[in-house]
Computed example of a mutant assay.
Amino acid sequence: MRVLPLLTALCVSVAQAEVPAALNGIWTVEQTAPVNGTPAPRVEVFISGSSLRGSFGCGKFAGTLSAGDNRVRMAVASLPPAPNERCLYAANLPLVRELNVATRYVVTRDHLVLFSGTSRLVLTRIGFVTPVSPR
C-alpha cells in the first residue's frame, strides 16, 4: 500500500523541520513562582534545533519543539533524577506544563516570550548555541 511510504516521509520531514535560528540559545526564566514556600531555583532552557532541554534547580526536563510564523508547539517532560539523588523539583514541574501549553512566541535578540491562552513566560538569553544538523 502506498500510504506507509507517504506517512513515513511526512514523519521524517516533520521531525527535521527547521526551528527559526533566533530561538536557538541558552535562556533563563525571568520570574518563577516560589515552590512550597521556598524561592524558586534558577531555571535554564537550552534550545538547539528542534530539541529542548533544561533544568529547574536539580530537576531536569527535555523534549522537542517546532516553531514558525510566531507559532510554537512543545512536547516537554520531566526527567527522573539519578538513583542516588533526592530532588524536590524532579516531578510535576509547573514550568514543564507552561512550556507544553505555549502556542505562540515572540523573540528578540535578548528575550523570548511564550504565550498560551492564559499566561506568558518571559525568558532572557544568557548564551548562544550552534544547532546540531540532522543526519
Rank of each mutant, 00 (worst) to 15 (best):
V107H: 01
T108M: 11
P39A: 09
P134F: 01
V132K: 08
P81G: 11
A77S: 15
L121M: 14
L114Q: 08
S66V: 14
A75M: 15
F46E: 15
Y89D: 05
L95A: 03
N92W: 01
S78Q: 13
P83Y: 04
R109I: 01
P5D: 05
E98I: 00
G57P: 02
G57F: 04
N24R: 06
P134E: 09
G54K: 06
L7A: 14
S51Q: 15
A82F: 12
V76G: 09
V106A: 14
S50C: 10
R135K: 13
V45N: 12
P134G: 08
E18N: 08
S116Q: 07
V101Q: 13
L52V: 15
A17W: 07
A22Y: 00
G59R: 13
M74P: 11
A91G: 02
P134A: 10
V122Y: 00
N100Y: 08
I47S: 06
V113T: 15
R53H: 13
S133Y: 06
P34Q: 03
S66D: 05
N70W: 06
S116W: 05
F128G: 07
V14R: 01
Y105L: 04
S133D: 10
A82P: 00
T28F: 01
A102V: 12
N70V: 01
P5F: 03
V72P: 01
L23F: 06
A62T: 12
P83V: 07
G49Q: 11
V113N: 01
F61V: 10
T103P: 00
A91M: 12
A102C: 13
V113P: 03
K60E: 15
W27D: 11
A17M: 08
G37R: 05
P5E: 05
M1S: 13
L88D: 02
K60F: 03
G25I: 13
P94D: 10
V12Y: 11
Q31T: 07
M1V: 03
A82N: 13
G127Y: 09
V19D: 02
E98N: 14
Q16S: 12
E18L: 04
N24W: 04
T108Y: 06
P134K: 05
V132I: 11
A90N: 12
P83C: 10
D110F: 04
R109A: 15
T8R: 10
E98D: 15
R71A: 12
C58S: 09
G68L: 01
L95Q: 07
W27N: 10
D69C: 02
V106F: 03
D110K: 10
G37T: 02
S51Y: 02
L93Y: 04
A9Y: 02
V12C: 09
S116K: 07
G63C: 13
Q31R: 10
P5Y: 08
S50E: 08
Y105H: 07
R104C: 05
C58D: 09
L93D: 11
V96F: 14
E85M: 14
P80A: 15
P81Q: 11
A33Q: 10
N24D: 15
T118N: 08
W27K: 08
A15Q: 08
